[in-house]
Design a protein around this nucleic acid. Structure first.
Lengths: 204, 204
DNA sequence: CAACCCATGTAAAAAGTTACATGATTAA
DNA sequence: TTAATCATGTAACTTTTTACATGGGTTG
């Protein structure tokens, strides 16, 4: 149950956010390591308000918009939860199940479909990687880290290391997708090319 | 909704498995990319039997044990689902949320707790990696791949590539954990060591 | 005969997804 | 003024997790 804590984190980072704001941020930056739909977010915000972790005010100039802020009790809860350990995240990848199914079924007609899925996966990894690398270049280049307090520098190191997790994850996914495509390609001797091509693809 | 298909795959691989057998396999080999508890599995098997995808018989010599097998309709469904595409898996890692919370809260006392969690994560990745590497050495070394049919060879390549996903995933997690620990270590100038140590750790 | 693995479930709660619904504001 | 985006929800459903429960067989 980490959604409320992800929301508290987001509210500590930027107080006076609406559910809509939070939902948008869960589609971008935070969304890399925690997804949530707007329905989940609104429901969770209501629960958190009842628990006394956050409070909300009507946004000036808007009839429907409500902005939330983290209360001291919410901050205490976030500190408590952050220090507490947790089990490693469960991995669930349907594409790997599909590949294993194809191997078990032994039907060669499935290879084409899997190849297409792998190519799609590859472009997804490449796209994510490019956007993460842009963020890294923009926010975490050496010249930016100069006249800061030690606390600020540590927070920045922490945020950078989180982004690095995303970068490494996407790189590893990209490299594996290429390896998998090369392995599937080996099945057709007729259009098989020089094995060195596969190695090139892995290096690129 | 891939659990039924993961179960069908497992039943195609080894017919006449009980719910208990399947649950054990979901704790080991299949468990790397799809987790399921025995409660989920028993319920799902009942559903699949009602849908006509599997059938069950009482195991001889046992009163309580039931063994399942995949029916033609189940096989057709598995083929259909395997060819169909799907969205990439959602990533959810509470440790990254915790790190981001620590950065947002700006309390240095949390660094110790996070360091401990990172060290634990690191040993988990190392342990998983070692066991995957053992499987790779045992089942996928070059001398084993000789007198096989082309279909068998392709299935074996597929299973190998799935294992490679696990290996790459654990390697990337291990490397990132080390990078993160090195970044957190940079905060304490008193016990800071030669930066080269961090590089060594990344190479090992 | 106690501890452990085999074997199968029920019940309840939490978390997440999908579909539906509505109204306000803003920019072309 | 129409379409897109902002903004907030409800309802129903599915999936997953956690806790509880039971009983047979095997081995030290």
């Amino acid at each position: 149950m980490s959604l409320p804590h992800a929301l508290l984190t987001s509210l500590v980072e930027r107080p006076s956010s609406s559910g809509y704001d939070l939902a948008r941020r869960f589609d971008s930056s935070i969304g890399f390591f925690w997804r949530a739909s707007h329905q989940q977010i609104y429901r969770e915000l209501a629960r958190m308000e009842k628990a006394g972790w956050v409070a909300s005010d009507e946004a000036p100039g808007h009839t429907r918009k409500r902005v939330y802020r983290c209360l001291p009790a919410g901050r205490r809860e976030l500190v408590r939860w952050t220090a507490e350990g947790g089990s490693p995240p469960v991995v669930r990848d349907a594409l790997l199940v599909r590949m294993r199914a194809a191997a078990a079924l032994g039907s060669p007609d499935l290879s084409g479909a899997l190849e297409a899925q792998l190519r799609e996966r590859l472009t997804q990894h490449e796209a994510a990687l490019m956007s993460y690398r842009e963020i890294e270049a923009r926010d975490f280049t050496s010249e930016r880290r100069s006249a800061e307090s030690e606390a600020q520098a540590e927070a920045e190191r922490m945020r950078h290391v989180i982004l690095r997790a995303g970068i490494r994850f996407e790189e590893s996914g990209r490299d594996w997708s290429r390896e998998a495509l090369a392995a599937l390609d080996a099945r057709d001797p007729h259009d098989a090319h020089d094995p060195l091509d596969a190695l090139d693809a892995l290096d690129a």
